[in-house]
């Protein structure tokens, strides 16, 4: 993405004549500001873009995009527009605005403006051609800047969220030497279950844990896949020499587990987290972790 940005030239005009033409363009766009942005907002609504926003909001954003657009044409530089695009993206991404909508509205503005230029210069075909040449180049770079800005912002937000979720969703806590607690909260899907298992196994190794308490009080529902993952986690932990105690199975989850026929003999379960920790302490005090998978407590 940074590559794209680097390739985009910092100025919009390449020739002296372009500068003159752009100046003329700018005054035309300023003179027709009200009518053109209304037309643009109308087209946005008509194309069913930005549906997450109200008509007023669309008009307000359209106005500031329009002004920034004209400003970019006037100054011939893209920095201000880049900053604006980023700021705009930051505001509209949480509203659920999609990439295709941003591309759509930018192309619509390009179209609205080109039509008005055509109407104005159509009597002088040669001049029209030159105006459109100058406008096309500038408009394309502007469209590119806005779209790239949006996509970059979106990627940044997604990365940030992924990071936050990863940290939140896998808190492997060491309570005391040899004892880890893994409280699982929220929905578990296949991928998260896999991630949890991998993290737990690594934590067992780094912390030299002998007992792990997995507390699923905060898990509302469970499906066959996730239940199997849970059983697999228990078994994989044992292969590393650690005993797993599962706590906090709600009546509903207990019912699901029984219904789908998960082999409960492989699971060492205790009612709640506190009971689980007490059981863990007991196991650690003996210093002997039974080799078999048969749970001595039910």
């Amino acid at each position: 993405m940074n590559d794209l940005e680097a390739h985009a030239p910092a100025t919009l005009a390449n020739h002296e004549t372009d500068v003159d033409l752009l100046r003329e363009l700018v005054s035309h766009l300023r003179a027709n500001r009200t009518q053109l942005r209304q037309e643009w907002a109308r087209r946005i609504t008509e194309a069913q873009l930005l549906t997450a926003m109200s008509k007023d909001e669309i008009f307000k954003e359209a106005t500031s995009v329009y002004d920034n657009y004209v400003e970019a044409l006037k100054t011939g530089t893209l920095e201000a527009l880049q900053a604006y695009a980023r700021n705009l993206s930051e505001r509209i991404i949480p509203r659920g605005v999609e990439t295709h909508e941003v591309v759509g509205i930018v192309l619509l503005l390009r179209d609205v403006l080109a039509r008005s230029l055509f109407a104005k210069y159509r009597s002088d075909f040669a001049l029209l051609n030159r105006v459109l040449d100058a406008y096309e180049t500038a408009a394309n770079r502007i469209a590119n800047t806005v779209t790239v800005g949006f996509v970059q912002e979106r990627e940044r937000i997604i990365l940030e969220q992924q990071e936050a979720i990863r940290e939140l969703s896998t808190p492997v806590l060491q309570v005391r030497e040899r004892l880890l607690i893994l409280p699982i909260i929220g929905a578990i899907d296949d991928q998260r279950a896999r991630q949890l298992t991998e993290q737990l196994l690594r934590a067992i190794r780094t912390n030299r844990a002998k007992v792990v308490v997995i507390d699923i009080t905060g898990v509302a529902a469970i499906d066959t896949n996730v239940a199997n993952h849970l059983v697999q986690t228990v078994e994989a932990s044992r292969l590393l020499g650690a005993t797993v105690i599962v706590t906090g199975l709600s009546p509903k989850i207990a019912q699901i587990l029984v219904t789908i026929g998960v082999d409960l003999t492989k699971m060492n379960t205790v009612g709640d987290l506190q009971g689980g920790i007490e059981e863990a302490e007991r196991l650690l005090a003996y210093k002997v972790i039974p080799g078999g998978t048969k749970a001595s407590q039910t």
Partner: peptide, 28 residues
């Protein structure tokens, strides 16, 4: 000394070491 990745793969394959003692490393 079963490695975490190896343990993970084993259970996915459905392989168990039932009834056999396991420990983290030589010392354990």
């Amino acid at each position: 000394g079963v490695q975490p990745e190896v343990a993970f793969t084993m259970v996915q394959l459905g392989l168990r070491l039932e009834g056999i003692a396991t420990a983290l490393d030589l010392e354990e």
